[in-house]
């Protein structure tokens, strides 16, 4: 990352190769269309390149920083569209998406990590996982979710907290050192 911050495109290439797959996957999960996911990923990585001096190792891993920027860009993309165009598209069953081949140990590890986190999310009560997914992956605010579910705002925020707390405890149990 230091070499990226020094402005070396070759180092940025390695950064993309290491995190581009996870970034594209997150973008696709959020915007639900391949072309739009490409745009989001491209915008995010250009933003990363242009704001590379802002990365601070003390505030988290490079991957967390990269995925945070992808998330913000995807939210921007979702909000550029009208609410009725925003949708949650499951990753499965979309013909145009090609599953990534498992070519490296790092990719295998990434898939295993994804499966573990999905499993932990799957253990949440439906009303908690629902508000978390609508907020994080759908880009909806708590007031929008409250209207959508016809549920008080306070209840929505409470479910978010309970869901994240439970998820955190599950992840701690799964890999105590991995998410601290």
């Amino acid at each position: 990352m230091q070499l990226v911050q020094d402005g070396r495109p070759q180092a940025f290439e390695l950064l993309y190769d290491r995190h581009g797959g996870a970034a594209f996957s997150l973008a696709y999960r959020m915007v639900g269309a391949r072309n739009a996911a490409e745009d989001v990923t491209q915008e995010a990585f250009l933003s990363i390149w242009r704001s590379r001096l802002r990365y601070e190792p003390t505030r988290g891993s490079v991957r967390t920083w990269v995925l945070g920027i992808v998330h913000n860009r995807a939210i921007d993309a979702l909000r550029r569209h009208t609410v009725h165009d925003r949708r949650m598209v499951p990753s499965e069953g979309i013909e145009e998406v090609r599953e990534a081949p498992e070519r490296t140990d790092a990719e295998v590890a990434r898939r295993q990590e994804a499966a573990s986190v999905r499993s932990a999310i799957g253990e949440l009560p439906d009303e908690q996982s629902q508000v978390i997914e609508l907020a994080y992956f759908g880009g909806f605010s708590h007031t929008e979710i409250a209207e959508m579910l016809e549920t008080p705002v306070g209840t929505v925020k409470g479910r978010m907290r309970l869901g994240l707390e439970k998820l955190r405890r599950s992840l701690d149990a799964f890999a105590p050192e991995g998410y601290a």
């Binding site: 495109p9 190769d17 797959g21 490409e38 990923t41 990753s91 990534a100 986190v117 999310i121």
Partner: peptide
């Protein structure tokens, strides 16, 4: 710790090669 794990939960897909090429050209 829980929120940061959410983006890592998604199904993994391979980005198209043209994305890498276009991005690296721009950064170059």
């Amino acid at each position: 710790g829980a929120a940061d794990a959410l983006p890592r939960s998604v199904e993994q897909h391979e980005p198209p090669p043209r994305l890498r090429a276009s991005l690296l050209a721009e950064v170059g």
